[in-house]
Amino acid sequence: MNKTIPELVEDFVKGDEAAFTELVSRFQKKIYTLAHHFLGNHLDADEVVQETFVRVYKKREDLKDVNYFSTFLVRIATNYAIDLLRKRKGHRSISEDTASLPGEVQLDLSRRVTTPSQMFERKRLMDEINRALDLLPPKQRLTAVLHDIEGYSKPEIAEIFNCPQATVRSNLHIARMKLRKILRPRLRLKEQK
């Protein structure tokens, strides 16, 4: 029978390596998508995934409450991603398209589009969104990514950033206002359609 996350975390903290393997398997996609949305390219997202789990492994004894594993993990990932972004001087290093990813990489939505023109339009839209996100400061960008893309709640984000919920609300509000302004032509175009 599959163990629950808290059970796996408990075993992992006690030194069960199989439990750690299972946790990596269950959470790596989550960390990858978050990092990819934040950093905008595969290589950096890949680095964040690896480093996050290596750090989690080393800091496992700091994990006080097994129920907060996800928050603990995402906090490490976001801290590392912000550091990486600072190293890149605030710019997501590669404005990447799906072709630069390894293997059979496709955006989920690319599978739903059928014609080359739809794929081209899709790519253009992704570039526009990435460029818009690129213009936000790290905390605002990360808040928008966590909330509006990854679906985290405001209390969860506050927990991850270790800050008051009011800060999260404020960051999200400003991020949305800026994105709306940047993407306004696209948003109005969609309205006309």
């Binding site: 990489v105 496709q106 989920d108 939505l109 969104i129 928008a144």
Partner: peptide
């Protein structure tokens, strides 16, 4: 809606 559409990137 637009931001939600950027979900589900999977390298395989």
């Amino acid at each position: 809606e637009l931001l939600k559409q950027t979900r589900n990137r999977d390298p395989g």
